[in-house]
Amino acid sequence: MPSPADVLGTTYPDTEPYLVGREKVREFARAVGSTDPVSLDPAAARAAGFADVVAPPTFAVVVQERTLVQLLADDRAGIELSHVVHGEQRFVSSRPIVAGDALTARMTITSVKSLGGNAMITAESEIRDEAGEHVVTAVSTLVVRGDA
């Protein structure tokens, strides 16, 4: 029987590069209510020393999502999306994401705990740029509800 415990310690293959688009950054910024000119106006971003618009702090989830798809597709874990609740989320950045970045993500399952019939899975996705430099690590703790 599949179990989330079976994927503990697994590192999944790098995701395909995600090209961060200017309009995607602006769309995301508006969707979270940002009014920061560096996220909305390329001229303001350049004046602040960035090559293009700067993504809001939680934008990395768009890239991280591609790794969580890998976890959901792993038959060893047997996780159904409808049973998943987001427990915790954290981002640790080396630098902001900027339009024009091509980002790949590599996820490792760092913790699996069982708690009253539920499983708590912690997945850390390291996001790097084309040069291989660290941009941000996105850490999710997912609560997978047991069949009840």
Partner: peptide, 29 residues
């Protein structure tokens, strides 16, 4: 979406310090 709540909740900090100033951000839902 939990991530919508998280994304909106940080906006006052973004307005004060700028999106590029945020080095870490974490929440529990």
């Amino acid at each position: 979406h939990g991530m919508l709540t998280m994304g909106v909740a940080v906006q006052p900090v973004v307005e004060r310090f700028g999106a590029a100033a945020v080095k870490q951000y974490g929440v529990r839902f």
